[in-house]
C-alpha cells in the first residue's frame, strides 16, 4: 500500500503548475465540505435520534439530543416483537445468512466463470458472454415476480434458498473477475504449469486465484452490499416475517409505524436503521483500499 501511495504521489502533477488563482483551493475545499455535510447529515440525524423516544423524535430539533437518553432501551426493543411485524434481531441474522452465503457463492461462481472467459477460447464463448451481459438489461422488478411464480410451482416460496440461490448470479462479478484475471494472470504462467503437468483445477486454485485476491475481495464486497440492500426480491418471495431480511423488516415496521395505532415503533425504525447501516460502513472503511485499488481500476477504465 505504502509503495503504491508513494508512486501515486510522485505521479501527481504538482498543483502550483496549473497557475490557479489564490482563492481556488479554499473555495473548492469549501464546496467539498458542503457536500460532505449534505452526505453525513442524515447519518448524524440517525445516530442522534436513535437516543430519543418517539415523542422527542417528532417534538425536538432533529440535529441535537433531547429528552431521556433511550439508546439502550431502543436497542433492547430490537429484540422484541412490539409491532406484531416480527423481530429485528431475526432479520439481522437472516440478512447475515443471506449476505454471507449469497456473496460467497457469487464470488466463487464469478471467479470460475471469469477465469473460463478470460483464459479459454471455446466455441460459443463470445455468445455466452454477451448473453451474461445482456441480463444486465432485464430489470429486477421484471424478474422477481416471475421468479415468485416459478417458486410457487417448485416449493421455494418462504425458503431461504429462494433468496440465496439467485443472489449467487452476479453479472458485475463475472465482468470484474474476467477483466481482473486478463490483466493479472499471465497466459504464460498457465502454459508453464500445464507443461509441468498440473491439472486445470490445480492451476485455477494454486495460480490464478492467489493472483486475483484483490479482485476477489472487490467482488465479495460488491455482492455483500447487493444482497444486504436487496429489497424487491425478498419482498415478493417471503410472506413469513421470521424470514425477512432487514430491508423488508424495516419497511414493514415503517408501514406499521405510520398506520399509527401501535406502540412506539419509530424508535425501533430509527435504531434498526442505524444497526442496519453500521456493519456495512465499518466493512467499507476496513476494506476501502481493496475497493479503490482493486478491480475497479483495471476494469472500468477501458
Amino acid at each position: 500500500m505504502s509503495r503504491r501511495a508513494k508512486r501515486q504521489a510522485t505521479e501527481l502533477v504538482p498543483a502550483h503548475l496549473y497557475g490557479l488563482r489564490r482563492g481556488t483551493t479554499p473555495v473548492l475545499t469549501a464546496l467539498c465540505l458542503l457536500f460532505a455535510i449534505f452526505v453525513l447529515a442524515p447519518l448524524v440525524w440517525l445516530l442522534i435520534n436513535a437516543t430519543k423516544n418517539q415523542a422527542y423524535v417528532y417534538g425536538s430539533f432533529g440535529f441535537w439530543f433531547a429528552g431521556p437518553f433511550r439508546l439502550f432501551q431502543n436497542i433492547a426493543a430490537l429484540g422484541q416483537d412490539i409491532s406484531g411485524a416480527g423481530i429485528f434481531v431475526d432479520w439481522l441474522r437472516n440478512t447475515l445468512v443471506y449476505a454471507v452465503l449469497g456473496a460467497v457463492g457469487a464470488t466463487i461462481l464469478s471467479a470460475l466463470a471469469g477465469y473460463g472467459f478470460a483464459r479459454f477460447r471455446f466455441r460459443g464463448a463470445n455468445a455466452l458472454f454477451f448473453l451474461v451481459m445482456a441480463t444486465l438489461l432485464v430489470p429486477i422488478t421484471s424478474l422477481a415476480l416471475p421468479l415468485f411464480l416459478v417458486y410457487a410451482k417448485v416449493g421455494l416460496v418462504n425458503s431461504i434458498w429462494g433468496m440465496i440461490l439467485p443472489s449467487t448470479v452476479s453479472v458485475v462479478g463475472i465482468y470484474l473477475m474476467r477483466t481482473y484475471i486478463e490483466a493479472s494472470v499471465p497466459q504464460d504462467l498457465i502454459e508453464a504449469a500445464r507443461m509441468d503437468g498440473a491439472s486445470e483445477l490445480r492451476i485455477f486454485l494454486r495460480i490464478a486465484m492467489p493472483l486475483s485476491v484483490p479482485g476477489l475481495v472487490t467482488v465479495l464486497l460488491i455482492t455483500v452490499v447487493a444482497v444486504w440492500n436487496n429489497y424487491f426480491l425478498p419482498l415478493i418471495i417471503f410472506s413469513k416475517n421470521s424470514l425477512y431480511p432487514l430491508t423488508v423488516g424495516l419497511s414493514s415496521v415503517s408501514a406499521a409505524a405510520e398506520s399509527g395505532t401501535k406502540a412506539d415503533l419509530v424508535p425501533v425504525l430509527i435504531t434498526g436503521g442505524l444497526v442496519t447501516v453500521l456493519p456495512l460502513i465499518a466493512l467499507f472503511l476496513l476494506l476501502e483500499r481493496y475497493f479503490r485499488a482493486g478491480a475497479l481500476q483495471g476494469s472500468l477504465t477501458g
Binding site: P42, Y231, T247, V248, L250, L269, G273, T276, V277
Partner: peptide, 10 residues
Amino acid sequence: AVPGVVAAVM
C-alpha cells in the same frame, strides 16, 4: 453502503 430502504426512511 446504506440500503435504499434506510435512506428513504431517514
